[in-house]
């Protein structure tokens, strides 16, 4: 279909084979000898080096730190603990919710401490992710279908969906905090007297609603872009053959938009798994709205190395989810070019 427009992963781009760079006369000969690979490595070097410094170095550094003991005063006993190698103790502490006990050894972390919150934070993070991404996908699809139709004022709608996207999350959080205030507009409109940030479920829903508001537009635009790749003739043909609206949606729209949809869902899922700003500002992580990212941030000032272990766990979780998406659900991000036909399976 559209494979001819963009470069496909397997075939060489249209320009393939011809040398791209013709240097000024004289050095032109030398440039021809340089392979494209050599050119590419020179051009890519700054980006790769920069990313190595700002991403790869911290990953390795965090990994090293996570196997070290935190030196400092024990918050429970007030005694000084020396640093040094810790083996996998930091990981065990998080996963088994064990805290170091006075006089060595470990005990179950007392409720309320950060150490006791790992599994609840994980559950909260996944709960937020599943609920927000599901809602965003459904709402985003609906918005995309509307924006794909032709009607007067369509450009107005397309512009309006960019507004929530453009507002910084920190501002979004404060705005919804105000909307959900006890005397705020939400309680007034729905004639309720809910202390939204005061107990578990209202607090969770406050975060979910704010997140869905903020990020559905992104989802809608990605899906819309996918919809616009479907040629109109396919629909015309189906109409002639007597397919109903529902049949057309199920047999044409869904399979053809699937590659774009999967990428959008993948992006949003990975983004939701690292959710921080919204719950941090909206609820402060209270009432079981502490996500893994918030837990890491809260831990940093109590001990770098334990925090490093937790951030590594978070990273591994996100990596695994991404892997599952790409491997089993067919979200083919990198080779998306010309992959419209892959949506069949």
């Amino acid at each position: 279909m559209s494979t001819e427009l963009g470069p496909t992963p397997v075939k060489s781009p249209a320009s393939g084979g011809t040398p791209i760079h013709h240097g000024p006369k004289g050095v032109g000969e030398d440039n021809k000898i340089l392979s494209q690979g050599k050119w590419a490595s020179w051009l890519l070097a700054p980006t790769i080096i920069a990313l190595a410094v700002v991403i790869v170095y911290p990953i390795i550094s965090a990994l090293v730190m996570s196997f070290q003991k935190d030196a400092g005063l024990d918050p429970v006993t007030g005694l000084f603990t020396a640093g040094g190698p810790a083996g996998v103790q930091n990981y065990v502490n998080w996963l088994a919710q064990q805290c170091s006990a006075p006089g060595g050894g470990t005990v179950a972390c007392p409720p309320g401490t950060l150490g006791a919150q790992f599994w609840s934070a994980t559950a909260t993070t996944f709960f937020f992710t599943v609920v927000t991404v599901t809602l965003e996908t459904v709402l985003g699809f609906w918005m995309a279908l509307i924006m794909a139709r032709t009607f007067r004022g369509r450009s107005l709608v397309r512009a309006a969906v960019l507004v929530p996207w453009a507002i910084p999350t920190a501002v979004t959080a404060k705005l919804w905090l105000f909307i959900f205030a006890f005397e705020g507009i939400a309680n007034k409109l729905f004639n309720t007297t809910i202390l939204w940030t005061g107990s578990e479920w209202p607090a969770k829903w406050a975060v979910i609603i704010a997140d869905v508001w903020k990020t559905t537009p992104f989802m809608a635009l990605l899906i819309l872009a996918g919809l616009q790749m479907i040629p109109a003739e396919v629909y015309e043909a189906a109409k002639v053959d007597g397919a109903t609206t529902w049949q057309r949606f199920r047999m044409i729209t869904l399979p053809l938009v699937k590659p774009a949809l999967m990428v959008a869902v993948l992006f949003r899922t990975l983004d939701a798994l690292r959710m921080f700003d919204l719950p941090y500002i909206l609820t402060g992580g209270a009432n079981n709205t502490t996500t893994l990212s918030i837990l890491v941030i809260n831990q940093i000032r109590q001990g770098f190395n334990a925090a490093a272990a937790l951030s590594t766990i978070t990273f591994i979780i996100i990596f695994l989810v991404a892997f599952i998406f790409v491997r089993f659900l067919g979200a083919n991000v990198v080779e998306q070019s010309g992959a419209t036909g892959k949506g069949k399976k």
Binding site: Y57, L273, S293, F304, A307, S311, T314, I318
Partner: peptide, 8 residues
């Protein structure tokens, strides 16, 4: 994830 950078 930003948190994986922040600690180191």
């Amino acid at each position: 994830p930003g948190v994986a950078l922040i600690t180191p």
